[in-house]
C-alpha cells in the first residue's frame, strides 16, 4: 500500500485517496476547432510512462482536495508532491520530496 503525504493532512494510507490519472492535461482552448485526431488525443490518449510520472490524486476521505504527485511507476517511489497549478518539479530520484506542511502530529503541537 502506498503511504501518501497529503499536502494538507500529512501521511495517510492509500485507501483514503483516489487516483486521477495523468496531471497537467489542459482542456483544449477551442474544442470545437480540434480535428478528430486531436479530440481523440484529448479524450483517450494519456502518457503511460515507465518511470517518473506526474499524476493527480484526490484525498477523498480527508480534506477532499486534489494535488499532484511525481511517482515512479516501476518502483512506486513518491518523488514529489505539489499543489495543483504548480509546474512539475525536476524528474529523478534526487528530486526533493515536498514535506507535508501539516501532519496529524504537527496540527496539535
Amino acid at each position: 500500500m502506498l503511504l501518501i503525504s497529503c499536502p494538507n493532512c500529512g501521511p495517510r494510507d492509500e485507501t483514503e485517496f483516489h487516483y486521477g490519472g495523468q496531471a497537467h492535461v489542459a482542456y483544449p482552448e477551442n474544442p470545437a476547432e480540434l480535428t478528430d485526431r486531436e479530440w481523440a488525443e484529448y479524450l483517450f490518449y494519456r502518457d503511460n510512462t515507465k518511470g517518473a510520472f506526474a499524476e493527480r490524486w484526490l484525498h477523498s476521505t480527508g480534506c477532499r482536495q486534489w494535488f499532484n504527485m511525481l511517482r515512479d511507476t516501476v518502483t512506486y517511489d513518491i518523488q514529489a508532491i505539489y499543489q495543483m497549478g504548480q509546474l512539475r518539479p525536476a524528474t529523478g530520484p534526487t528530486a526533493p520530496t515536498v514535506t507535508s506542511p501539516v501532519s496529524p502530529e504537527g496540527a496539535i503541537k
Binding site: R12, E16, G62, C63, P104, E105, I108
Partner: peptide
C-alpha cells in the same frame, strides 16, 4: 484505523477525517 493514535501524537482536541473499520 491507520492513524497514529498514540497519546504522544494524537492529543485531546484533535479531529481528523479518516477511515475506521474500512469506512470514512
Amino acid at each position: 484505523c491507520a492513524l497514529d493514535l498514540h497519546p504522544r501524537v494524537f492529543k485531546p482536541g484533535t479531529a481528523l477525517s479518516t477511515e475506521i473499520g474500512g469506512i470514512p
